[in-house]
Structure formats: structure tokens, C-alpha cells
Computed example of a mutant assay.
Amino acid sequence: MCVYQWPPPGLSLQKQNGSNDSCILLLCSLEALNPELVNFTWIREGQGSLYSSTSYDMNSSLDLCKPDWSDGDTIICHANYSNSQTQTRIRLASHMLLTKIVGGRIAWTGSSSLRMCECRSVSQDEHIDNMYLKWVTNHLLFFTLIYLPHTDAESIRAVKGETVRLSCHSLPDDSVQVSVEWINSATSKTICKWKFDKKSESYTAMQCIPHVTFNRTSLSIENVQFSHSGIYSCKTTRLIPPPSVDNISNVKLQVEAPPGLSLQKQNGSNDSCILLLCSLEALNPELVNFTWIREGQGSLYSSTSYDMNSSLDLCKPDWSDGDTIICHANYSNNTTQTHIILTSDSESEYGSDKVLRRKYSAMLLTYEFAHGLF
């Protein structure tokens, strides 16, 4: 039985009429496909990339004139679209009417693409079994990479509302052009994908959901929410040079509630002094800058430390009844503040970003209690 190994379905490579006898015009076409963005890469076998183009035309042409080509050159056309890629090739000859034996295979070169036929004795059942085994292997690999728990995943914590950056693995040193795809493993949906050319530091075929940006292979999510928590998979595919090589790494994102800022009055050194304590809670220790402000008058004091709190001691005449003191905390890329209104009888109004206020008045409670008795 003779098993014919034709070029991948739908991709054809043909020689067109060149401008003169020393020139050859090649046309690579992707057929039987709804129009979409396709990246074509032309490669001279053994020497590297010749030319790349990206368009919705579903075809790409290459014009070569001597001395840029010679008899026996093998030209490869590589097409990348959606999540698929395919390629075909042609061997050049002066009259394009040669038949050559290539590595035990019969290679015809003419006005159409190179076709190879390798003959061996196989049964029909063996051929079908091999195809089925390949199909099962590919699907098992996909489920293993996407659905099984990712014990090797890097863990990243972020506060709700922040912009978080997810890092992908490093690209192989020999990569010239790669495709990058980030997938939300919980939904198996692509959230961003693009192609990156290392030489030109340029991007093509970008498709990302809103509030998502990228840089080289890393991904940034703006204004993260609790629903963004989960495992994300980064898949890179080396497109140039061929053959294609896939790499996958995983990142676990945990979105947490923003830390709370509290402002409390402590016991001062005497009746004319007030000691205030501002604390940032529910946050892993990190460098925090606290700024104390008297509303309407400007900054009173600043401190920077890993203690997650700051204190302010005020003695008269540096404060008076009705003064509003604001504690402002700045950490990472976030800021928050709260405030307190000072009174002589240690009864103060408290506020926060939500401008929630509480006032405790012993006199009012005494009056209401007395009124209830009569």
C-alpha cells in the first residue's frame, strides 16, 4: 500500500510568471477558509526567514531574482491562523521541470507545490489506528495541561482594584517569532493572544478582552476583582524558526479585599494632649508612607516604615476643638485615608473614605435617659 503524504489541507504553493527569466514569483494560498487574519512566513530551508506578511487576503507572494535564489533552493511557506499552523514547500530549478529524489522520497517540482510520496506496506486498520492514537494523545495532553491542578503554578496576590501583572516563562534564545496566548483555566477561554517578533520588538494579530494589556509575553489585568481569582495558563509557540515548539506555564492569582485603615484616640500624656494612632490592617508587612494632615492647614507629620501604623501626639495650643485630623496611607500603588474630629471631652467624630461618621455623646445619652424617667 502507498501512503501519500500531501501538504497540509488547504495550503497551496505555486510558481507564477516572473518579471524575467532570472526571477521567480511564488504564490502561497490558504484555501477553503473563511477570511481571517493570517500570518505568512517565507523561509529558505537551512538559512532562515526571507519575508513575513500578515493580512486577511489569505495569500502571500514572494518574488526572487538571481542571485537571491539558485537551483536546488527549498523555499518554505508557513501559515499561522487562529490556533492552527501549517506549511508547504517548493524546490526551485531554472526550468521548474525537474524531478529529484530527496532522502528516499520522490519529489516533483513544477508549477504546483512540492509533493512527496513515501511508499511502505501498511494495512488500512494500522493507518486508522495510528490516526486515532494521535487524536487521543493530543486531547489527553490538552486536558492534562489545562484542567488538572497546577501544582507548579506561581502564586500572586493582589488587592481588589489594583493592576496586576502576570509573568510568563522566558522564550528560548533561538526564537525569532512566537505566538503568545493566555487562557483562563477555569473557563478555558482565551483572554489575550498576540504574536511577538523578537528582532523588531513588534506585535501583530493582537486580540484581548477589555481591561487587559500585554508586554512581550507578560499580561496585565486592570482593576482586578474577586472574580479574577484563579489559574491562568500562558502558552507560547515558537513560529520561527520551524519546527514549532510549544511551552506552557501557569500562574495562580488570588484577589483579596483591600486593607482597612483605622484611626483611634489613645490616652495622652495629660488632659491637654491627644495621642492618635493610625493603623493599616489585613495587609502583609510592606513599606507604608503615612501622612498626617490638619484639614485646611496642610501637613503636620510624615513617617515611613514597615510597622503598618503611625502615631501623632498633639498638645495644646497645637490643637483645638473641632479640628479635623486626616491620616493618609500610601503603599504599593494604592492610597487610602480616614479622619477624626477632635473635641476636649475625648468624644470625637470618626470618618473614612466612605465618610461614615460616629459620635458618642455622654451628655445626650444622660438627657435621653433622664427624659425617659419622667
Score class of each variant (00 low, 15 high):
K15I: 03
Q16A: 04
N17E: 10
N20M: 14
N20F: 13
D21Q: 15
D21M: 15
D21T: 07
S22L: 12
S22I: 08
S22P: 01
S22T: 14
I24W: 01
L25W: 07
L25S: 04
L25V: 03
L26R: 01
L27E: 11
L27P: 06
C28M: 04
C28F: 02
C28I: 03
C28H: 05
S29G: 11
S29H: 14
S29A: 06
L30M: 11
L30P: 09
E31W: 11
E31N: 15
E31I: 14
A32S: 12
L33N: 12
N34I: 10
N34W: 10
P35H: 13
E36P: 04
L37D: 07
V38R: 00
V38P: 06
F40P: 01
W42A: 01
I43W: 00
I43G: 01
I43L: 03
R44H: 01
R44S: 02
E45C: 02
E45M: 04
E45S: 07
E45W: 02
E45R: 04
G46K: 06
S49C: 08
S49D: 05
L50F: 03
L50C: 02
Y51D: 02
Y51Q: 10
Y51L: 09
S52M: 06
S52A: 15
S53G: 15
S53P: 01
S55G: 07
S55D: 05
S55W: 07
Y56K: 07
Y56S: 08
M58V: 04
M58L: 12
N59V: 07
S61V: 14
L62R: 01
L62F: 02
L62K: 00
C65W: 05
C65Q: 08
K66M: 05
D68W: 09
W69G: 00
S70H: 04
D71K: 11
D73E: 05
I76A: 00
I76Q: 02
N80V: 02
N80P: 02
T86R: 03
T86N: 10
T86S: 14
T86W: 03
R89E: 15
I90A: 02
I90P: 01
I90D: 02
R91A: 06
L92W: 00
A93V: 11
A93K: 12
A93R: 11
S94Y: 12
S94P: 05
S94W: 14
H95E: 13
H95S: 14
T99C: 10
T99G: 14
T99H: 05
I101S: 03
V102M: 12
R105E: 15
R105Y: 14
R105V: 12
A107S: 09
A107H: 13
W108E: 15
W108T: 13
W108A: 10
T109S: 10
T109P: 04
S111E: 11
S111T: 10
S111R: 13
S112Y: 08
S112R: 05
S113E: 09
S113L: 11
L114M: 10
R115I: 13
M116W: 13
C119Y: 08
S121C: 11
S121P: 13
S121E: 08
S121I: 10
Q124H: 09
Q124T: 08
E126R: 10
E126W: 10
E126V: 07
E126T: 15
H127E: 06
I128L: 06
D129P: 03
D129L: 15
N130Y: 06
M131K: 14
L133Y: 08
K134H: 09
K134A: 11
K134Y: 10
V136Y: 09
N138M: 08
N138I: 12
